[in-house]
């Protein structure tokens, strides 16, 4: 399931904490980095490595919103809809994506390319509205900026 390289990285993570259980969040990050989401199989394997009951791993994975519990599109469009973005155009961003890609929040395009999510504050309030695409922030979005971004990804 995990490559040699990943297992070595997991060892290194565990050494940073006095209790191997503390490695759970970083190990889930590591698993998701390559697979895009955390499957039940991954959870069971992580539980085995860290000596945890699988239920603990499930509990943690589902508690934190950034761990994907199911596969997401190649580009995960995460639009902040919290207050500062709400005041400056989050509705425009979601509406335009809806219109262009024909998907609503929580949905993925049939070709598996885009998933749209509405997310909570991304800490980018001074450059609102903001959308995170996979790991990258796209700030101070205007309709034109959003269109060219979507075109560049299509």
């Amino acid at each position: 399931m995990f490559t040699e390289q990943e297992l070595a990285a997991i060892e290194a993570i565990m050494s940073k904490y006095p209790d191997p259980k503390a490695a759970l969040l970083p190990v889930l990050w590591l698993a998701q980095a390559k697979r895009g989401w955390i499957s039940e199989e991954v959870m069971r394997e992580v539980a085995k490595i860290l000596g945890l009951p699988p239920s603990d791993v499930l509990g943690v994975t589902t508690f934190y919103t950034m761990y994907n519990k199911k596969p997401v599109g190649k580009y995960h469009l995460q639009v902040c809809t919290n207050i500062s973005c709400q005041l400056t155009g989050a509705e425009m961003v979601v509406g335009r994506i809806r219109e262009k890609l024909k998907i609503g929040p929580g949905e993925t395009t049939p070709d598996g390319k885009f998933t749209l999510s509405e997310v909570e504050c991304l800490g980018s309030c001074g450059t609102a509205p903001v959308m995170q695409v996979n790991d990258d922030y796209h700030e101070a979005l205007t309709p034109a900026k959003l269109d060219s971004l979507l075109e560049s990804l299509a």
């Binding site: 904490y17 209790d19 259980k21 503390a22 490695a23 759970l24 969040l25 970083p26 889930l28 990050w29 860290l50 603990d56 943690v60 508690f63 934190y64 919103t65 950034m66 761990y67 997310v119 909570e120 504050c121």
Partner: peptide
């Protein structure tokens, strides 16, 4: 690194999050 939970800014839940909970 956190993983998307506002509550983890609260100091005691932040500690639990470091502990892997």
């Amino acid at each position: 690194r956190g993983a998307g939970a506002y509550i983890c800014g609260e100091e005691s839940s932040l500690m639990n999050s470091i502990e892997g909970q």
